[in-house]
Design a protein around this nucleic acid. Sequence first.
DNA 1: TTGTAAGCGTTATCAT
DNA 2: ATGATAACGCTTACAA
Lengths: 342, 342
Amino acid sequence: MNKKSATIYDISNKLNVSVATVSRALNDHPRISEATKELVRKTAKEMNYKQNNLAKALKSGETKNVGIIVPYINTNFFSSVIRGIEEELSPLGYHVIICQSHEDVNIEKRQLNTLLNAQVDGIFMSVSKTTTDISHIQSIIDTSNTPVIFFDRKKDISGISTVTIDDYRGGYMATEHLIKEGYKNICHFAGDLNLEIYQNRLNGYKQALADHHLPVKEDNVIFTGSSIEEGTEAIKKLWSKKSVPDAIFSSSDFAALGACQELKKRNIKIPQEVAIIGFSNEPFTQFMELPISSVDQTPVLMGKMSGQVFLESVKENGSGVSIEKKVVLTPQLYIRKSSKRK
Amino acid sequence: MNKKSATIYDISNKLNVSVATVSRALNDHPRISEATKELVRKTAKEMNYKQNNLAKALKSGETKNVGIIVPYINTNFFSSVIRGIEEELSPLGYHVIICQSHEDVNIEKRQLNTLLNAQVDGIFMSVSKTTTDISHIQSIIDTSNTPVIFFDRKKDISGISTVTIDDYRGGYMATEHLIKEGYKNICHFAGDLNLEIYQNRLNGYKQALADHHLPVKEDNVIFTGSSIEEGTEAIKKLWSKKSVPDAIFSSSDFAALGACQELKKRNIKIPQEVAIIGFSNEPFTQFMELPISSVDQTPVLMGKMSGQVFLESVKENGSGVSIEKKVVLTPQLYIRKSSKRK
DNA sequence: TTGTAAGCGTTATCAT
DNA sequence: ATGATAACGCTTACAA
């Protein structure tokens, strides 16, 4: 059995018509008689003909593939964004290629090149924590027509569209919620300020305090990563001081979880003595015996919007113009037991 | 600025050498002088030459893309398997294309065709719950050389390699653990028996009971899906009967969680009155205030092994032979508070 | 060591 | 309505 699939030449030979006719018939070209169309389609099916997309792509320049670069794929947030992109683009015949940067700017750089090399029609990315120099991304804009779309973790590069949530507002909402519940000495677990998202959450936190005439103490801002351990460490550090906070707004759900665990160990009651609210609305936050309040980033929607922005820029590319889009989604506050005193 | 990227013809023109020489120089062909190689490489860089992989793929028949079909991407298990595959294959220049079947055999069928159409070098898949008829998969084997690898949720098709965990053993281990902790009336939340994995877990459960001379009661097997709600429903059903179980082995962590919540509502103490153990070792199981025991499926390893099996079959394809591989991984028991009475 | 030219499977531009 | 042929960008057997 020969597993090499049939080409339009094979059909052309069998039917004694030219390849051009076969190609046109298969593409439902208007100036081909219905009779030959029918005949070609029939024999194509008989011969188990499969169109070679590679050849088509080589001609058209479109691969119908898009690339996505994320730090890691197996977190709820990123896999949900990917799901959104896939669901938006798949019905239009696009395929989604996934790459992980492992939070390493050098890998990110390599993945970017390899995607470009794979001739993708567009690239979606969330930059790594170690991405400070952005020349590798800038150069894509300068040297290729491949549209790049940042989602969530963006950098300011002219010509690149972005889809983000309003992290400032998320920080503001979370903090204001704590204030309204009567907490007065609210501290913040801040993330890596190299990323705008963490800067914005921090700024939202500060502004909410200021707007409600509460002092903004630099001592109340603890820099932590996104791990459980760093959450417990932060509590140890805070509780070694003279004055302890009565609420925590953490920019990471995992750090919030670590804080919960450490507070429990110290027999400190949540939310009576200390309130906690996290960020990302990771699935586990709602499953806990003491469910943790959190700010949802609507990741699937973020993916879908990113897909739409890409489609628009593909359309524009044809018409010569290219407009930079900035989509900002509204975060959703999920208030649970960990921050409800009233 | 012209963003159309340079080809080997452009280099060939500029240097007054043939395209063949350029191609060979770029591919480090042994019979090209070091001088010209150097020259070609230099000007290639200057002209910002990027190899067109499409053209290369059209010639070679290899796209260096592989496809993955999973029910959903945004669960810990599947995204972790994907991560494993990506990490194994990415260093060899492969790209990973993701598709979701949404547990629908018709979508699965379409995705399969579209991947084949995209000329992927291999396909990894975990079949959907609704996949009973497998002719669409069988036909790939018959009509193409594209290797297919099943992971986790497999079907018995000759010629297809599989990477799974020993679900039978997983079920046996979990049940035996409960028995050794002194539980005697153990029930099982079984999944959709259309999938082998759930059949095997059920069989492992039954055998463990039999081996320890405990009665296997059909009443103690409740069929549930993988949701929290179905877990709570199962408890309601069980506790409406005259005799209630003192332990639950759930084939799903989510159903186990639902059970925990419902038992707690009824003031039934875990693990004193009832023990619970789940399956999959979802992240949330360890974060809970009452951590749930579970059986880990080593998903990242499963992905890596799948990648290796694929690489082997690519190698074999060249040599004409094709050996069907069956990799079976050992599940890991994670014993936590929810099932420790002693 | 380097050049010529065919071929991978399509689509599109001319003709007819 | 259909055919001949060039082109997409690359690799490679055959020549020189």
